[in-house]
Design a protein around this nucleic acid. Structure first.
Lengths: 124, 124
DNA sequence: CGGCATCCTACAAGATACTG
DNA sequence: CAGTATCTTGTAGGATGCCG
């Protein structure tokens, strides 16, 4: 069955279980974590620096959610001081690729968006 | 330049202007609106029924944001009672396609996510 | 260093009522 | 029908302090 023939996306039903998962990967920080880990594994504070503006709490929370969903692997080494490395699981790499394609598209089309905004704003 | 060579995603900078745009299309209702319009144009209340659980207010707000960014076209016909049709612009069709690919991927990999969750939850 | 617990606030989001 | 306006509530997200 071709994609274009799909008429009723399951995701558009209130009770669709994939909604929360979609919200996890497309969440404010989820997108940025996936995009960053796509490059290479990162330590916690490394990730925090790489992603500007994320609080410690939100980063921890985002990482936990993504780990629980099976997108991120957490490798806590039993050393002092603690060292924890985060990387993408095989499944995580696949979503990250999609997210990455999307972000690149957005960046490439920023001019179009700004132009649209100007037109829109001028009309009122 | 190959995608895999991109090392420093612009989007991972606090001041990156593409962040808001990305958040618009990946927002809770933005994703669902784009997915639904991908199929065919919809009227307001039609859209509201199709997307379960969205309030009137949030749908209006989401549509305005997407229209301003140039992803959605609003066609208000001067009739009584009012009739307004929403559809995707060419640019909107492109993002919607990406979003759609992503949602399909998530739906196809739901089992994997649930399995990961079970493993994760059992470990504590 | 990499968290977790607590508290607090701002904003996203829902409910309701009203209007062109 | 397709919205706006107003009010209320829930939750995301930030600040701070503590601990293994």
């Amino acid at each position: 069955m071709a994609v274009s023939e799909v008429r009723a996306p399951n995701v558009n039903r209130v009770d669709c279980p994939s909604r929360p998962v979609l919200e996890h990967v497309t969440s404010r920080w989820g997108v940025l974590v996936l995009a960053e880990l796509r490059d290479r594994p990162h330590r916690f504070s490394e990730l925090r620096r790489a992603i500007g503006g994320v609080s410690e709490k939100m980063l921890a929370q985002t990482l936990q959610t993504l780990e629980r969903d099976g997108f991120v692997d957490r490798d806590a080494k039993p050393v002092i001081p603690p060292r924890v490395d985060y990387s993408l699981t095989p499944m995580g790499r696949e979503v990250a690729e999609q997210i990455w394609t999307l972000t690149r598209w957005v960046e490439a089309n920023l001019d179009g968006v700004f132009a649209a905004r100007e037109t829109y704003d001028k009309a009122r």
